[in-house]
């Protein structure tokens, strides 16, 4: 557990939480076979919120955000993303997926395509944007994550941190309204964590709705407007970061925080 804080003042001027609901999860339950991984999850995310989801491994936090774009199927309850309910209707699923970007722990770039092709593939095939326009958009976002010069290389030629920034750019090229981050820095060397966090902070500063599963408590303090703590498949506690870190209520939260911040 690290406290990788990016050494600069986070610009909060654009970070406004609107009162429009982006994601509405009600009484959602999920089982793996007979194992009850997510238990009665209720969560409402407004547009512009930056939510950090923390918790011990196996607490279901990754599974929760993977349910939001239907990489995992929930068995009971309701998930509404941007006004569309997630059901087994493939059309709804594809619509939601093209509006919700996701960044994975292991980047999952496509190794047989160049960085630029990684970024333009979905816009061209899903959004039906002309190639030239898609490439311009891709270059714009690659510049934003500060690696335009790598555009013609293959993922395997990049460092982990660079690959993760490409993965972020790839998601952004679809112009998502919501971004999900599934432990984006857990597979990175300490030096590279900062460059990825910097990119994520930049994104937050621009007002993106973000759900981040992460162990980066520094990031949570700097950027999040809400921290959710999960254990055993349920939301144990949620609060705004200051209160969450300084005044945890639940015993499990106190134990968790003392373990990750104690030394």
């Amino acid at each position: 557990m690290s406290e990788n804080a990016v050494e600069r003042q986070v610009d909060r001027s654009q970070m406004e939480v609107s009162d429009k609901v982006a994601i509405q999860i009600t009484h959602m339950n999920k089982w793996y076979g007979s194992f009850h991984v997510l238990r009665d999850i209720n969560l409402s995310v407004n547009e512009g919120e930056r939510i950090v989801i923390a918790g011990p491994s196996g607490s279901g936090k990754s599974t929760l955000i993977r349910c939001i774009n239907r990489l995992e199927e929930h068995q009971a309850g309701e998930i509404i993303v941007d006004g569309t309910e997630l059901s087994s209707d493939l059309k709804n699923i594809d619509k939601i997926r093209s509006e919700v970007g996701m960044v994975f722990q292991h980047f999952n770039l496509f190794p047989h395509l160049t960085i630029l092709e990684n970024c333009t593939l979905a816009p061209i095939w899903v959004r039906k944007i002309p190639r030239k326009e898609a490439e311009e958009t891709a270059m714009h976002f690659l510049e934003k994550v500060k690696i335009p010069e790598q555009a013609l290389k293959y993922p395997g030629q990049l460092s982990g941190g660079q690959q993760q920034r490409v993965a972020i750019a790839r998601s952004l090229c679809m112009m998502p309204r919501i971004m999900l981050f599934d432990e984006p820095t857990s597979a990175l060397d300490p030096e590279m964590i900062k460059e990825v966090l910097e990119t994520m902070i930049q994104l937050a500063e621009e007002g993106m709705t973000m759900l981040c599963v992460t162990h980066e408590m520094g990031f949570a303090k700097q950027v999040a407007n809400r921290v959710i703590f999960m254990d055993q498949g349920q939301i144990v506690e949620q609060n705004e970061p200051n209160e969450f870190f300084n005044n945890p209520q639940h015993e499990r939260t106190k134990l968790f925080l003392s373990q990750i911040l104690g030394h």
């Binding site: 997926r97 919700v100 994975f104 999952n108 979905a122 998601s171 679809m174």
Partner: peptide
């Protein structure tokens, strides 16, 4: 992850 990334992009 390759399947998931493709799915996640829609």
């Amino acid at each position: 992850g390759q399947y998931e990334a493709a799915d996640a992009l829609g």
